[in-house]
Computed example of a mutant assay.
Amino acid sequence: MKGCDVYLSEESVKELTSRLSKIEGQIRGIQRMIQEKRSCDEILIQISAVKSALNGVATKLLEDHVQSCVKPSVEAGDLKALEDFLEAVKKLIKGGC
């Protein structure tokens, strides 16, 4: 995913930034819940919501990257872009970088 000239559209940047801002607010909410000694059940539900929201951001990012970078590169005969993309997906699934 290193050699891409086109990255994300302005619309995608706005959407992803908005989603991340909401996630940031959710994280602050979880911090407050812990400080207020709220029930573990409530906190775990919010953590699950944050994980789901982050997965949505990752999915959107992957979809946009395939359309703007991987697909054009592969169509031009550059399979390195596909290999890099698949490696990034593997790392995402494993949860490490």
Rank of each mutant, 00 (worst) to 15 (best):
A49L: 07
D64Y: 00
G95Y: 00
V57Q: 02
D78V: 12
T59E: 15
V70G: 12
I23E: 07
H65D: 04
L62A: 05
A58S: 05
H65Y: 03
C40P: 07
S48I: 02
D84H: 10
V50T: 04
Q46A: 07
I23P: 07
D41L: 09
V70P: 11
E87I: 15
G56I: 00
S21A: 13
S68L: 04
D41I: 10
E36K: 13
E24M: 11
D41F: 05
G29L: 07
A76M: 11
Q67F: 03
M33R: 06
G95C: 00
L16S: 02
I27V: 15
A81Q: 14
A49S: 11
V57M: 02
I47N: 05
S73P: 06
K94L: 04
I93Y: 06
L20V: 01
V70Q: 09
S73T: 07
P72V: 12
L61Q: 03
I34P: 05
D84N: 13
N55M: 01
T59G: 13
K22F: 05
T17V: 13
L86C: 13
G77T: 14
C69E: 09
R38G: 05
V74L: 14
S21L: 11
S52C: 02
A81T: 12
Q26E: 15
L44N: 11
G25W: 08
D84R: 03
Q31T: 11
Q31V: 15
L92C: 00
L20S: 00
V89H: 04
K22P: 02
K94Q: 03
T59H: 07
V66S: 09
I93P: 06
V50C: 04
S21C: 07
I27T: 12
K51N: 12
V50K: 05
V70R: 10
D41E: 14
L54A: 13
V50M: 05
L62D: 00
